[in-house]
Design a protein around this nucleic acid. Structure first.
Lengths: 208, 208
DNA sequence: GTTTGTGAACCGATTCACAGCA
DNA sequence: TGCTGTGAATCGGTTCACAAAC
């Protein structure tokens, strides 16, 4: 089962499974069935079994899954455990929040560079990292072994930021900008738009 | 075409269309074809036409869509334009970033309440709003007409926060907590997990 | 001629349901 | 017996392709 054979939707659930398995390992649970794992992950058992089948055949019929073994395989598929250098582009409120977010370190993500274009911000230190000018991006990516970028820039600056990040050699980008972005070849982009999420939720509110 | 007939996936694209239409109105464009709109939104023309067809039939064959009219219908479906009170639960770095996020106001979202459990934080003012104790939540929801909640609490506190928010009468919730949450009846929940997004992106990185 | 709106075909993902293995 | 892994059925959503409308 090659890596590229993992369906997109399955891929989005693997981090959830990884978290559930982390919990079970921490609690010393040795074995778990698809029913138990699915309940903890908030999905259907059949879906979880199908998802895991894309990684290989690691369960035992009549028994369930060995928690530690399965965890190793899920982590392996996601590349968890390997250190991943992250650059945060745009050091406003959101950029500072991402840079300070404690949830990244236990997953192997290390914010090793911050860049901005505002001279007021460049030179300041956030979460122990000095903010550099955007012009330094390419150098920092190489020197600090950056493999992921988080864009926390205003919408109007997002396309330029994405292009700059791509030119610097980073191939995986998470954007918080409320914009449809044209994605350079070979770059994987995921987007989060907080206002859009709230608008989607608004749909369900009473129109009154 | 009733409101509940809008498919989930279409719903997630409506905010994108709304933004594109905002731009066109601002630039004084009167009419646009599905090809033009789709290009700006980053989707296929057929998909855009299908999506819009769920809202009604607002295009003119041989001409395209009247930008202002279509915008009004898309906004209407999402309830944009109506003021929406928002409470931010958990005033850490991320909560402060959300409370200060300028992108919410133009979409009609107004952060009118902040709550936390930490006595160090309660009483401070963020983005012009005083942080209240979580115990005040129900009162604030009523007094300030809150219809949406954003959960920016640590993972371990998320389920309790969600339950408290639901008990206070808020029915639409956006969570940033890295947890699978059990959703109370009648509540719409959307989740954003930054570390999970980075893990998904990690999948595409070279394993070396 | 141009472009919408939509049946119909297609596609990927979910769920069912059970054969196969522990 | 109990539970996985997976064919087969199903479902929702996307894309095709064209008749209808302008």
């Amino acid at each position: 089962m090659t890596a590229s054979a993992v369906p997109r939707q399955t891929l989005t659930r693997l981090p959830v499974y990884a978290r559930v398995l982390d919990d079970l390992v921490r609690r010393g649970v040795g074995t778990a069935s698809s029913v138990e794992l699915a309940a903890a992950a908030g999905v259907e058992p059949a879906q979880l079994r199908r998802d895991l089948s894309h990684l290989g055949s690691y369960g035992k019929r009549g028994v369930g899954y060995d928690v530690a073994e399965l965890r190793a395989h899920v982590r392996g598929a996601l590349g968890v455990g390997r250190r991943r250098g992250v650059v945060v582009v745009g050091v406003g409120n959101l950029g500072r929040a991402v840079a300070s977010y404690a949830g990244l370190v236990p997953r192997g993500f290390e914010v090793v560079a911050l860049v901005d274009v505002d001279p007021e911000v460049v030179g300041t230190t956030v979460a122990g990292v000095e903010v550099a000018d955007l012009a330094e991006l390419s150098r920092l990516v190489v020197e600090r072994d950056v493999s992921l970028a988080v864009l926390t820039v205003p919408g109007g600056a997002a396309q330029d930021a994405l292009d700059a990040v791509a030119a610097s050699g980073v191939r995986s980008v998470l954007s918080f900008a409320p914009r449809a972005l044209s994605v350079p070849d070979g770059v994987a982009l995921r987007s989060v738009d907080v206002a859009a999420e709230l608008q989607i939720l608004s749909y369900y509110l009473p129109p009154a």
